[in-house]
């Protein structure tokens, strides 16, 4: 099977999603999780873009591209809100993690 452009995009998208998921689950620090969210988002948009190019005869389908743009705007605003909340929270709590994940002030830091 030839590695077509759309398949390549699709695989890249899947890889990004995987990476991002890993980051989202593993990290406690909120900024990293937001970054991971953006990585996953990019992966999904790539996948979407690949879907737009399914039919080589008709050329690319405009609908997914419109959707991707919308999606990027949505992701952007979500990121902005998340960052604003993180900053506000960090100012008050002196921590960039949620209370239940926050072990920075904990003497047991590093133990399993």
């Amino acid at each position: 099977m030839v590695l077509s452009a759309s398949l390549l995009y699709g695989l890249c998208g899947a890889a990004l999603i995987g990476l991002g998921l890993y980051g989202f689950v593993v990290h406690r620090r909120l900024i990293r999780r937001v970054l991971a969210f953006n990585v996953i988002g990019s992966g999904i948009f790539l996948l979407f873009g690949a879907a737009a190019y399914r039919d080589p005869v008709a050329g690319s389908d405009p609908v997914p591209q419109a959707m991707i743009i919308t999606g990027i705007v949505v992701a952007l605003s979500a990121t902005a809100l998340a960052l604003a909340l993180i900053v506000a929270h960090a100012r008050l709590a002196r921590s960039d993690a949620l209370p239940e994940d926050d072990r920075s002030g904990d003497p047991d830091e590093g133990r399993p």
């Binding site: 909120l30 999780r33 969210f37 949505v74 929270h89």
Partner: peptide, 21 residues
């Protein structure tokens, strides 16, 4: 409440990504 909002946000972000996927 900010912590609660952030926790909500994390679940919600994950949820919207899954949905979009």
């Amino acid at each position: 409440t900010l912590a609660a909002a952030l926790r909500y946000m994390m679940f919600a972000l994950m949820g919207s990504l899954l949905y979009l996927l």
